[in-house]
Design a protein around this nucleic acid. Structure first.
Length: 299
DNA sequence: GGTCCGACCTGGCAGC
DNA sequence: TGCTGCCAGGTCGGAC
């Protein structure tokens, strides 16, 4: 489930491969992964030169040399892969390196007949950029710089930016009557948090996910701010969270899973003892999403 | 304007 | 063994 740390990892992997590259051929195989028609998208992207690769919230942003912006959202199961001409991903200069990285690579290498490859882009250096998505909820679009600026303006604070301060969080919390967990998932308030990191941050801060956002108060908001920043930074360091080994689970652009799942304190631990107070972790449903929390020490 | 909820989508899995 | 139905969850749009 790509959230901020997973998208950030993908950006870091993709950037050195894609910067300066030009798309020489595009093949959109599944219509609903692009906004508009596949033909229109293929025309728009062919000949485009990628100037930079970045992230805004959970969005991947390819800035094009002509000023346009190619954004993509991975939603639940979307993945980007870059591969050399011979169809093999290259080991990168980053991460845990060497044999360990190679042994951790899932058997998900792109094949031309892979049924989950939804769009393929041939680049001018002979490599291939593929968009893979089992559930086809992910999508992409090419827009003008102005359209992207408008879209970006509607997004919430970047939690790893200097603008995300305890005070800014406290002010936004005070203006909402929703449960704090649902508040954290609202991308117009904070851009990048998803279900996993929201419940982990609330556990670290000792705040009940049921508590109304406006009742969090300044002191708890300071704790929550610290918890959000810490959990996201640590997850980025661990290259994100991969919960299983199915075709739907998160892997980066080289097929390598993250390792933050080893550090999860509450997510997916229903019935297991809280690591702080030993109370069994409880699972509830909020806003049609699973919430995990400790009823003993989260108030 | 804020909040809530269904729809989208498909693989995995439990239950029968 | 095979079928059915539920679950996973990020975003959007419509309803209230």
């Amino acid at each position: 489930m790509p959230e901020l740390p997973e998208v950030e990892t993908i950006v870091r992997r993709l950037a050195p491969r894609l910067r300066g590259r030009t798309v020489v051929r595009a093949d959109v195989r599944r219509a609903n992964v692009v906004r508009g028609t596949p033909q229109r998208f293929e025309r728009a992207v062919t000949g485009a030169r990628i100037e930079s690769v970045s992230r805004r919230g959970k969005f991947l942003v390819f800035r094009l040399a002509d000023g346009r912006v190619w954004w993509s959202h991975l939603r639940m199961t979307g993945q980007w892969r870059v591969e050399r001409e011979r169809g093999r991903t290259r080991p990168g200069p980053h991460g845990r390196g060497g044999r360990v990285r190679e042994s951790r690579r899932m058997d998900v290498a792109h094949r031309p007949d892979d049924p989950y490859v939804r769009a393929v882009f041939e680049l001018d250096d002979g490599s291939t950029l593929s968009f893979v998505d089992v559930r086809t909820l992910g999508e992409m679009e090419i827009v003008s710089a102005r359209q992207w600026t408008r879209r970006e303006a509607a997004m919430g604070l970047e939690p790893l930016s200097p603008e995300f301060t305890p005070q800014a969080l406290a002010e936004r919390l005070a203006a909402s009557r929703r449960p704090v967990k649902e508040f954290l998932l609202d991308q117009t308030r904070i851009a990048g948090l998803g279900n996993i990191y929201a419940v982990e941050a609330l556990w670290r801060a000792g705040i009940s996910p049921r508590r109304r956002a406006r009742s969090v108060g300044v002191r708890r908001a300071v704790r929550l701010h610290r918890a959000i920043v810490d959990v996201l930074r640590q997850a980025v360091e661990k290259a994100g969270t991969s919960l299983g080994e199915t075709s739907q689970d998160y892997v980066d652009s080289e097929g390598v899973p993250g390792s933050f799942q080893e550090f999860l304190d509450v997510y997916d631990r229903e019935g297991e003892p809280c690591r702080r107070c030993r109370t069994p972790i409880r699972r509830i449903v909020q806003g049609q999403r699973s919430t995990y929390y400790c009823p003993g020490c989260q108030r």
